[in-house]
């Protein structure tokens, strides 16, 4: 099935490719279970692309970087094809509606996805590193570096967002290609979307929550990985945290953990209106900080207060940062 999807992506790309196009997709690395983004700059590179259970990186991030670096080749004059899982497609939508990237430039290819596995989770389950992974139906057959062999259900290695299912819905947008069976996909996710999850913010008193936040964020090393992979963080080099001349030095405490809380508070305060809940921040965090406990809260807030789900369409203006006279407040 997955092999078929990969094949379909390739043939789709072959059929729509015009000279001067570019595509962003995934490819294999030498490390088992790790896929890396891959920039296809001419037609004969298409066959190197890979789509399987490990393609966790959201490629929408790269659309935010048009301002920052010259990712387009010099002879680019056509379209930028970008392969997306449905959750990433919503990040792309959000970038469209925030006018960060022009719709004319991008050609969206949404791929049917049955859950993405996290390689680091597999390592934890195996309690050791794996030298070889094979996929069989819904299980991984893993070979450990020490020589042990183990079969692990794929479901156990899923990224958190995949088991939740809240991010799996497709955007309302006419202009994308869908690879896979769309009706089947919609049917599968329809009962997932409305599951209710309890958040720590509801169950804990502020004091307990404060303690938990303190504990989790004290391990933050401020590497900015969460910020830089976030598709909603599009300020790139002009981010508040990188302004040498800002009058208020936001983060000037020698106490790192206090500092970290402020860093994440400001970051979420800035991106919450655009956060589609893609979970990239949590996946990228090298210290495994459960950042989902924050963005899930904001996602729900947006929905409850404004009936607004970021990334649902390509044109809805986000509610928190715009206001027109006469519009109802809140």
């Amino acid at each position: 099935m997955k092999k078929q999807i990969e094949k379909n992506i390739k043939s789709l790309l072959h059929s729509i490719w015009k000279s001067g196009d570019m595509a962003i997709s995934w490819t294999k690395t030498s490390i088992p279970g790790k896929r890396t983004p891959f920039f296809i700059k001419n037609k004969n590179q298409i066959d190197q692309l890979v789509f399987d259970t490990f393609c966790a990186v959201s490629l929408a991030t790269y659309l935010t970087e048009f301002n920052r670096k010259e990712i387009l080749p010099e002879d680019f004059k056509g379209k930028l094809h970008i392969t997306c899982k449905p959750c990433d497609a919503r990040s792309v939508m959000q970038l469209f509606s925030d006018m960060q990237v022009s719709e004319e430039l991008v050609n969206l290819i949404v791929i049917q996805c049955d859950g993405i596995a996290d390689e680091s989770k597999l390592t934890k389950i195996m309690s050791g590193y794996v030298s070889n992974i094979e996929e069989e139906n819904d299980r991984f057959i893993c070979k450990g570096i020490g020589g042990t062999e183990k079969s692990v259900p794929i479901r156990d290695c899923w990224l958190d967002k995949c088991s939740d299912g809240k991010n799996c819905d497709l955007p309302y947008y006419y202009g994308y290609y869908f690879v896979g069976n769309e009706t089947e996909y919609r049917k599968r996710i329809s009962n997932l979307l409305h599951t209710k999850t309890d958040l720590v913010q509801d169950t804990m008193s502020p004091k307990e929550l404060k303690k938990l936040v303190n504990k989790e964020l004290s391990s933050c090393i401020r590497c900015n990985a969460c910020r830089n992979v976030c598709p909603a963080c599009f300020c790139s080099d002009r981010c508040v945290f990188e302004q040498p001349k800002v009058n208020v030095k936001y983060l000037d405490s020698e106490d790192a953990s206090k500092n970290n809380i402020l860093y994440h508070m400001i970051r979420f305060n800035h991106v919450a209106p655009n956060c589609t809940g893609c979970g990239e921040c949590e996946r990228a965090c090298p210290m495994s900080i459960p950042l989902s406990m924050f963005y899930k809260y904001f996602n729900r807030l947006m929905w409850e207060e404004f009936e607004y789900k970021p990334g649902k369409t390509n044109s809805e203006r986000q509610k928190l940062l715009s206001y027109h006279l006469g519009e109802d407040l809140v």
Partner: peptide, 19 residues
């Protein structure tokens, strides 16, 4: 008016982080 909405977010940011 615009800040009214933003202040709502601040309140919730505080709540989310245990203040």
């Amino acid at each position: 008016a615009i800040s009214e909405r933003r202040f709502l977010l601040v309140k919730h940011t505080l709540k989310a982080f245990g203040f």
